[in-house]
Design a protein around this nucleic acid. Structure first.
Lengths: 131, 131
DNA sequence: TTAACATATGAGCAATGCTTCAGACATCGG
DNA sequence: CCGATGTCTGAAGCATTGCTCATATGTTAA
């Protein structure tokens, strides 16, 4: 199968048909692409990005994250809700406080990589800071 | 010590003041955070993400990128315009065709890392594919 | 030159997202 | 028990973004 005609179905011109087929075959599934785009979208907001960078050094409560990111506690809570829903952060409750930490090693690596290449080395390595 | 009045300026409560100061000192500048968020924002759209994943294997013309990403050529052109403005891709003109390639090694690493951790290994390594 | 083609660009519309405001819920101190 | 505190949530307002359509620019072919 994989006839060449199934690509030209829409009004899309193709120059290097062989190449297009190869890339399409190697392309991740629609769901994987969507999920990946969602993760990147979570990193695309300055406020959330600050929150996550702060969490690189260990867990923090909501109000301190608000102080660090400069946003209101409500806004930070909304952000954390999103991050939680995508398994990026995890919450630990201690009384009426909620301490958040990075739950995903992938995001930590993405952040480290990005920070490194922005010239801002995040203090060599992060031994997770035994709180 | 550390008078409560210097941080409590806004309506932001702080629990671990020492920790907040440390994180604020280690936090990248506002511009770096913004620029980083912009880059992540470019990766946050499924269409653009497909385009960039396709470009991992080498340069491609606009119409083929449209075929790969499933979007219209106009939409892809708009995407490429954004990516170009942020130095993520670079264009090579050959007659009336325009061939795009990844211009930034950082983004390539981000994409490789992300694809690896999504379980979809993009064919081991990418030796830049000598076109 | 003219016609067809590949891409680039601008305007306008629809959808999504971020923030604030108001209130809810749970917990601690009295 | 009560009020105060920390966090969470829902709705509304506002901005941003991505798409399509139409058009412009530059290139090749006849």
């Amino acid at each position: 199968m994989s006839n060449a005609s199934d690509i030209g179905a829409c009004a899309v011109r193709v120059v290097d048909r062989e190449r297009v087929s190869g890339v399409l075959a190697a392309m991740p599934s629609q769901e994987d692409i969507g999920e990946l785009a969602d993760i990147f979208g979570l990193l695309a907001d300055p406020g959330r990005l600050k929150v996550l960078v702060a969490l690189l050094e260990g867990e923090m409560c909501v109000c301190d994250l608000a102080a660090v990111s400069g946003a209101s506690e409500s806004a930070v809570s909304h952000h954390l809700r999103l991050l939680r829903a995508h398994q990026v952060v995890r919450a630990r409750r201690a009384g009426r406080m909620a301490y958040y930490r990075l739950a995903d090693a992938h995001v930590r690596m993405l952040l480290d990589l990005a920070l490194t290449h922005i010239g801002h080395a995040p203090a060599a390595l992060h031994p997770e800071r035994v709180t």
